[in-house]
């Protein structure tokens, strides 16, 4: 089964969703991410959904759950790059993701996480993990 790669960038994890999310993939991502946060002691999780064109209530709720789980594990979740149409859909579905932080793009999201860590710079050596 396909898995969504989770990249470690300093003390943050970067997830870029580039395929259409179906429910099993979403559940798998949630599990992988939880384990990865614990394993790497990550302090921030960046979820880039700029390539997602369709988001249903299940994916919306999954984002909310991931945020809640990572908060419990002392990591901050920032969802970045949401498209206008997706934002409108989520609001119409009644999912305003109040527990999730948001930013316009990966750059801004990274800034938010960095500000939280109060780190001047995330280490350059990023290693991919799957």
């Amino acid at each position: 089964m396909d898995r969504i790669p989770i990249l470690k960038l300093g003390s943050a994890l970067l997830v870029t969703i580039q395929v259409d999310m179906h429910d099993r993939l979403a559940t798998a991502l949630q599990e992988d991410l939880t384990e990865k946060i614990v394993a790497t002691h990550a302090k921030g999780v960046l979820i880039d959904i700029s390539a997602l064109e369709i988001v249903d209530s299940f994916i919306g709720r999954m984002l909310d759950h991931i945020a809640a789980i990572s908060r419990m594990l002392d990591a901050e979740t920032v969802v970045v790059g949401m498209r206008p149409a997706v934002a409108i859909t989520l609001v119409e579905l009644g999912l305003s993701l109040t527990g999730v932080k948001t930013a316009l793009d990966v750059e801004r999201g990274m800034e938010m996480i960095r500000r939280r860590l109060d780190e001047p710079e995330v280490a350059d050596g990023d290693d991919a993990g799957a």
Binding site: V80, A87, S96, L97
Partner: peptide, 12 residues
């Protein structure tokens, strides 16, 4: 409020 929520989801 809907407009505000949607803008927030976009990070603004």
């Amino acid at each position: 409020l809907k407009t505000v929520s949607a803008a927030r989801l976009m990070g603004a």
